[in-house]
């Protein structure tokens, strides 16, 4: 493979998050290197989604900090995260239901649009050219994800697996440096899971995008990730390559547990 794992791009230091008295995350630290596929796994309620929402700025941790390319963010928010090159997908698909697949993916280009409101309103040359260029980029993504046949379909009418793919497409349209995937394979059948795994690997390989993904299904994750963080009850219980993690006794007991 052409990709080479680089330096640390995202570093989480001592992140703790609680909602009232409930501790969702306790003192979690881990790093993500450039171009790698980094998975966060754990049983239900382990704090995986909370972790992703902290990186993306939806939740603000009470303690700890996020260091992105050497820059410290103590107050991240989703808009800042987007500007800093972090894109994400959602566990319960959050597409714009009334809009077509094409329009949904086009919204991912928002930050790249330079033409101002007046230029857009009057369709001045610059705005027109820009729109066409973005449209071309979006068509590339549509080809890449093999969804040409549903370009004009309103996303609300698509089956679940395809909606997940559009969700990924919208994130890709941002040309992110870091892509956060929240359970990309949840609720999919075996064939859909294979397709999704292939797309994730291709994105990583062809665009060099760093990927942080959360998964619940251990099998798939172990196959595609470079390194894995394991959470349980909001605490980090394992971190390393898939093989190391698989051999970690704490991880085994969390997943298989004596009582299970």
């Amino acid at each position: 493979m052409a990709r080479e794992i680089g330096d640390i791009i995202l570093d989480l230091k001592g992140v703790s998050l609680s909602f009232g008295g409930v501790k969702a995350l306790t003192d979690i630290s881990f790093d993500v290197r450039e171009h790698e596929i980094r998975a966060i796994i754990g049983p239900n309620g382990a704090g995986k989604s909370s972790m992703l929402n902290v990186i993306n700025g939806v939740y603000r941790p009470q303690e700890g900090e996020i260091v992105l390319r050497g820059e410290h963010f103590s107050k991240m928010n989703p808009y800042k995260a987007a500007c800093a090159g972090i894109a994400r997908t959602f566990q319960n698909i959050a597409l714009f239901k009334g809009m077509s697949v094409l329009d949904n993916i086009m919204t991912g280009r928002t930050l790249k649009m330079k033409a101002n409101l007046l230029q857009q309103a009057f369709r001045l040359g610059a705005a027109e050219r820009e729109e066409l260029a973005h449209r071309a980029k979006v068509e590339e993504i549509i080809d890449f994800l093999e969804i040409q046949h549903i370009r004009k379909t309103p996303v609300g009418r698509l089956p679940y697996g395809l909606q997940k793919r559009v969700d990924l497409g919208r994130a890709l349209a941002m040309e992110p440096q870091i892509l956060l995937l929240d359970e990309p394979m949840a609720g999919m059948n075996v064939e859909e899971k294979q397709d999704m795994s292939r797309f994730i690997l291709d994105v990583n390989d062809q665009f060099g995008t760093t990927i942080v993904l959360i998964e619940h299904d251990m099998g798939v994750v172990m196959d595609i990730s470079d390194r894995v963080v394991v959470l349980d009850y909001g605490k980090k219980i394992g971190d390393g390559t898939p093989d190391e993690v698989r051999a970690n006794p704490e991880v085994i007991s969390a997943y298989l547990g004596a009582s299970h």
Binding site: N56, V58, N77, P78, Y79, A81, A82, C83, A87, R88, F90, A94, L95, F96, K97, G98, M99, T107, G108, T110, L111, R170, A171, A173, M174
Partner: peptide, 11 residues
Amino acid sequence: DDHQAAQSIGI
């Protein structure tokens, strides 16, 4: 359609 998704793509 969706505040949160809109924010996350940088709107």
